[in-house]
Design a protein around this nucleic acid. Sequence first.
DNA 1: CGTTCTTTTGACCATCTGGTCAAACCAAGA
DNA 2: TCTTGGTTTGACCAGATGGTCAAAAGAACG
Lengths: 200, 200
Amino acid sequence: MTKPPTRIQKRNQAAILSAGLEIFSQYGFRGTTLDQIADAAGLSKPNLLYYFPSKEAIHTALLERLLENWLDPLKALNSDGDPVREIIAYAHRKLALSKGYPRESRLFANEILQGAPRIENILHNDLKQLVDEKAAVIKGWADAGKIAPVDPYHLIFSIWALTQHYADFDVQVRAVLPDSDPYKGAATYLDHVISRILQP
Amino acid sequence: MTKPPTRIQKRNQAAILSAGLEIFSQYGFRGTTLDQIADAAGLSKPNLLYYFPSKEAIHTALLERLLENWLDPLKALNSDGDPVREIIAYAHRKLALSKGYPRESRLFANEILQGAPRIENILHNDLKQLVDEKAAVIKGWADAGKIAPVDPYHLIFSIWALTQHYADFDVQVRAVLPDSDPYKGAATYLDHVISRILQP
DNA sequence: CGTTCTTTTGACCATCTGGTCAAACCAAGA
DNA sequence: TCTTGGTTTGACCAGATGGTCAAAAGAACG
């Protein structure tokens, strides 16, 4: 019998999650303080704790929301489609995620860097199962000669690395790149890389 | 007139830096406590502060030590060498760095994720200058038709991403990979990827 | 307007954290 | 052995931090 959230609850919970994402993704869990989040959300600290019972709860909520969509791009890889097209499309979905949700990407990166204490089981279960499944599909394509005979696991890692790099190492990319929008050149380059990798 | 460090100073400073690297690389600057470092180094907290004046000082020392070698692999890229060989060799040097110094890689990743507050100027000066120089070399090779016409900046980013991923996302890689040593397959795959990217 | 339920806040607390300091301890050379 | 200078520590401190609570202030609705 949970009551539907009020207008104010919706607004404030959204503000807290948005603020939490901003801060957690930059400073990590331990590096973030409730005061920082409260400030960014425009609330007092006790008011913030009226909506979420603890710092941990905010972080958990953010991770859960992130993981809901994090695996979608890979899930959508279709074993019946054209191999090269499918994998390129996957890489582009991942790049779009980095571009559209860089803070989520950094939140995830922070979690992994710290040893993934809160999502280790998800990595070992959901993620591993999904990757195993799709790796098998890719291996099938390779065995059939439809793509180059590459290790499917490392292929997937390389797509993760190539795309998430632009979100996670944003500061470095922008420090080095003369161009103002890294993602423009990134998409073109990604096309080149993946199609070259896969050419039988 | 600085005195040479005593035997005990050498031992303890090394222990502190090693412990600091271990903890900082996992929890980031703010997520790390002096007690954690002191514990890991086998010293009391005041004793630790006898050797380094502050938490900041330990972190700075580690970053400086790291940066001393961080750019070497790229510096060694020789404009007179064989283009494809040179770039592949560079990628392998980077991969070796990830394998041999994963904690340093994660320390760097943490710093970048947090917006690089302590090394922003180095990124904008030393790093940018070096990358600009080597990107020009690579562009020359591309223009001469010796390698495929790729954007040299994104090529360099992709080498960083592909190699550092194995150190920074180690937990995730090991959660997914059936194999026990990710670096074995990684080297082979890296060879494949870079040579395919560069084929004119 | 009055009642009820939600929302907000100021004051407060225990614990953690970076850092200090004087005093004790110890290594090593004269 | 004594002295000197480097080393270690227990006790301590101020400020930060996660979290609590009772009471005040606002919505919502008849």
